[in-house]
């Protein structure tokens, strides 16, 4: 059992939760994740560590409510307990030799991109952040990005804030400008990462994507997190989650990510009904 220190909404569907676990807080580095279980019967949910508060022995995760299990997380209040938290899992993002970097985040993926951008700027690298959202009311962490980035580009699909369009727009002009970048690090929806990889490819810039496939144990035991990278099967939980974006088979990853879509919708429905019933009685 681990204690929830706080849990608040960042936008209508994205929450930030602070969790007490001195062991995880002490060790987690940018790019690593944890697996949480809200209650005794909940699913195991992999979530990236957004920030560590070592002095308090706590860490933050930022998550989007998608299925019944993330709904159970969202219902937790300050002082409540989660059934389980295990981590840190996966390998930290390899930041060696990176001095001038573009970080591209999309939607809730920005929560994963932020610690990487922060770690880079703490190491003295020059960070250019490109963050994209569907529309204005879904924007999260803008100020946090402003703080750790030398430059920040904000785009929205509908143009309700920042430039209208997707993240590849500012990315292309940055690459076009002739400035030398050591790497592009991208985290967000699979489709977005696929296009980021396509955009950077002609420039031969090292591009790293952080994969978040379906996971179960997070220790290399089930293989449901497998992704094909350069024609070789990799397990994202132990070999990743970061891989060379130019080698990832994104189309396969997109198909695999939909394995449980129908089930999730049904479980969400059921959970809502249950919730409504409880609220009534």
């Amino acid at each position: 059992m681990v204690r929830v220190i706080s849990n608040r909404a960042l936008n209508p569907t994205v929450y930030r939760m602070e969790i007490e676990s001195p062991r995880i807080a002490e060790r987690a580095e940018a790019g690593q994740f944890v697996i949480l279980r809200a209650d005794e019967r909940s699913e195991r949910i992999p979530l990236t560590v957004a920030e560590c508060h070592r002095e308090r022995g706590t860490f933050d995760v930022i998550y989007q409510v998608v299925g019944a299990s993330t709904m159970s997380l969202a219902e937790k209040k300050e002082g409540d307990c989660l059934s389980d938290a295990v981590g840190p899992l996966g390998n930290p993002t390899d930041l060696a030799g990176m001095r001038n970097v573009i970080v591209v985040g999309g939607g809730v993926g920005c929560a994963i991109a932020l610690p990487v951008a922060c770690a880079l700027s703490e190491k003295g690298a020059r960070v250019t952040s490109v963050i994209g959202f569907r529309s204005r009311d879904l924007i999260i962490l803008q100020e946090d990005f402003e703080r750790c980035s030398a430059r920040l580009f904000l785009v929205t699909d509908d143009g309700s804030a920042g430039e209208k369009g997707n993240v590849c727009l500012p990315l292309s002009s940055l690459l076009e400008s002739g400035e030398k970048f050591d790497a592009v690090i991208t985290i967000g929806p699979l489709v977005m990462m696929k296009f980021v990889a396509q955009t950077t490819k002609p420039y031969g810039i090292k591009t790293i994507a952080s994969m978040n496939p379906i996971m179960l144990d997070g220790t290399g035991m089930c293989g449901c997190c497998r992704v094909t990278v350069g024609g070789v099967m990799k397990f994202a939980c132990v070999d990743g989650p970061d891989f060379d974006a130019h080698l990832i088979d994104f189309d396969e990853a997109i198909l695999r990510s939909r394995t449980y879509t129908a089930f999730e919708a049904e479980a969400r429905e059921r959970h809502c009904n249950l919730f409504r019933k409880e609220a009534k009685s």
């Binding site: 019967r41 909940s42 144990d217 089930c222 449901c224 695999r256 394995t259 999730e264």
Partner: peptide, 28 residues
Amino acid sequence: NAKGVFSANEYLTRVNLMKAYEADSETP
């Protein structure tokens, strides 16, 4: 790597550890 292909460990873990066979299981 198609949808619908599993390792036995994944399948069994979902069923046994996560009790996916119980009607109201949250794990698919």
